[in-house]
Amino acid sequence: RKFEECSMRLVWDKKLSKDIWNYVGWNSIGSFAYMANNQGITVILNLFFSTIVNAARGIAATVSTNIYNFVFNFQTAVRPQITKLFAVGEFKEMNKLICNSAKYSTYLLIIIGLPVFIETEYLITLWLGHVPTYVIAFIRITLVEMLLKSIDLPIGDGIQAVGKMKLPNITSAIAYLAVLPTIYIALSLGASPVMAYIITCMSYPLALVCDLWILRKYTGFDIPFYCRDILARLLIIIIISAVLPTVITFYMPFGFLRFALSVSICVLCSCIVIFYYGLNKEMRYKVVRKVKNKLAFAFHQNT
């Protein structure tokens, strides 16, 4: 209003308004389904068990959320680039960025989350003084959920960039809402709260399969390459990284020494396996160069 060269008038763009409300409306359905899944499980657990179970669920959510924040912040930084590449029609580069986002964010989650998965009992004992019922199982299953979510989130970012939200939100809503009656039936038949958590975890691979199919439909995403380069490679990295720390937890007595040794070896094994097997030659060169530059800068500052 203060600048003469600027003017404003109200315009009703019917097509744009329709696109916006379609986007918002279908996203709202997906968000509602996710919220109903999360809160519905809490309600169902309250129907069958005492508040101890939901207290354990709250502890597991706290631990997993703090770990996943590292990954989520990394993926948030990549999201605008995915949208930009789609806007200019660079589908090949966009899909490559989606793969890299899924790959490196899950590597980060492995380095942070795998030691927690292996030494959950000691960490909870150190934090709370005692281990509440079901907490260890809940935390470990939730960490698996976080891993699946970190794989799927970049796929969802690619679909968000496309903007056609009807199909992905319908499929994700079905995947998330179908869990609730399944859990109710399982608990009615005498299943434990741990089984309810396992059933909940099954909705994430189902949503991932649907999202992969939808992204391929819109952008030609290479699903075989994704399965081979991301999923299979990720599984191998987890298995190799977990072998030695798991052996340590079996043969050493419970305590700080075992915790310190298993966590140190787990982080070291994860970093080595990721560096030599998880990264390609170009990325290894960039990492080495970055580390050398940082060390040279630190040495220069000290001298």
Rank of each mutant, 00 (worst) to 15 (best):
I238M: 06
T303I: 12
G40C: 08
Y34C: 01
I52S: 12
Y107T: 07
W21Y: 09
F117W: 14
Y277E: 00
G190K: 11
I29K: 00
R289W: 11
V116G: 09
T142E: 13
L114M: 14
C269H: 05
M8E: 09
T133L: 12
S17D: 02
A56Y: 04
K292T: 15
S50Y: 09
L16W: 00
V243C: 01
A260Q: 06
S64E: 14
N69Q: 13
S264I: 11
S64A: 15
L212F: 08
I159T: 02
D157Q: 04
I82G: 00
S192K: 15
F138G: 08
R1S: 14
K164E: 09
M146A: 11
A232G: 01
I199G: 08
P80Q: 02
I136T: 15
L295E: 12
A242I: 07
T249E: 05
Y285F: 13
F225M: 03
A87W: 04
T83G: 00
H300R: 11
R57Y: 14
Y197P: 05
S150M: 06
V63M: 07
Y107G: 06
C210G: 03
A173K: 01
A36W: 06
L244V: 09
T246N: 01
F49S: 08
P224Y: 07
F32H: 02
S241M: 07
K166C: 07
I185E: 08
P253N: 08
N169E: 03
F250P: 01
C6K: 11
L189M: 15
K149L: 05
V287H: 06
T76S: 10
L97C: 06
Q39F: 15
Y277Q: 02
C269I: 14
A298I: 11
L153Q: 04
N95G: 12
I170T: 06
L114K: 10
F221K: 06
A191I: 15
F259T: 08
S31K: 07
C210E: 01
S172M: 05
C6W: 10
I67W: 05
V78P: 01
M35L: 10
Q39L: 15
R140W: 09
I223D: 03
V116Q: 12
I198H: 05
A178T: 15
I170C: 01
L244Y: 02
E119G: 06
V24P: 02
I136C: 09
I151M: 04
N22F: 11
I151Y: 01
L235E: 00
Y285L: 13
Y204M: 07
L126W: 09
A33E: 04
S64K: 14
N73Q: 11
L235K: 00
M35D: 08
L244W: 02
I237P: 02
G25D: 03
I111W: 09
K15E: 13
L261A: 11
D157R: 00
F48S: 07
S241A: 10
L244H: 01
M8I: 15
Q39I: 15
K217T: 08
I82Y: 00
R284G: 04
P205H: 03
E93R: 15
I237Q: 02
F48K: 10
I151N: 00
L244I: 09
A196V: 14
L16R: 02
Y68I: 11
N54D: 08
G25A: 03
I159Q: 00
V247C: 02
Y107M: 10
T142R: 15
I238Q: 05
V247P: 00
I183Y: 06
L47P: 00
S17N: 07
L45Q: 08
L109P: 04
Y276P: 03
L268K: 10
G278S: 03
S150K: 05
V243I: 09
